[in-house]
């Protein structure tokens, strides 16, 4: 049962990560295009996404079970990416937020900008959590190998 739940959460983790990145990218590209700004000025927002992507690759390639089989960590990742998507969706489609109508490019950028600081906090938190879990895993491996050595002796 645990394995099934973990598999579902792990799959959703990657799907929601892509969805969250896509919606954030769309919002920044659209608003920069409308206001004739260079997208390079918003590249700082995507750094936590890049870091997380690298860490996820390491998790997959290194087959790190401590991270990939951690239900709590996978659930937290899903929650964070889902929250990102909800906020992005509301910034685009919630027309009852009047700034959406007034701003002229159909995206409530002020509402989304207020959330960006929280988004960075959450994403960097996930990165640190991932690294800490990876470090724990490596150390646990050493404990198990040490225990085996003692048993042999």
């Amino acid at each position: 049962m645990k394995k099934i739940i973990n598999f579902i959460l792990l799959s959703f983790r990657y799907i929601l990560f892509l969805g969250s990145f896509a919606i954030t990218f769309f919002i920044f590209v659209t608003t920069n295009k409308q206001s004739n700004n260079n997208i390079n000025s918003s590249i700082v927002i995507f750094i936590p996404y890049m870091v997380l992507l690298i860490l996820f690759f390491i998790n997959i390639i290194g087959r790190q079970k401590k991270v990939n089989s951690n239900i709590f960590y996978n659930l937290t990742c899903c929650l964070v990416f889902f929250t990102n998507m909800i906020v992005g969706y509301r910034a685009i489609y919630d027309k009852n937020m009047i700034l959406n109508k007034i701003m002229g490019y159909d995206i409530n950028m002020i509402y989304f900008n207020n959330y960006v600081i929280f988004m960075k906090l959450l994403m960097y938190g996930l990165c640190i959590g991932n690294i800490c879990f990876m470090a724990t895993k490596r150390e646990q491996k050493e404990i198990i190998s040490n225990k085996k050595e003692i048993e042999v002796l």
Binding site: T76, L79, F118, G125, G129, F133
Partner: peptide
């Protein structure tokens, strides 16, 4: 690791 993940979980739930 569990503390940081727990804090992130709490903040995300709150938001």
């Amino acid at each position: 690791s569990y503390t940081i993940t727990g804090l992130v979980f709490g903040l995300a739930s709150f938001i």
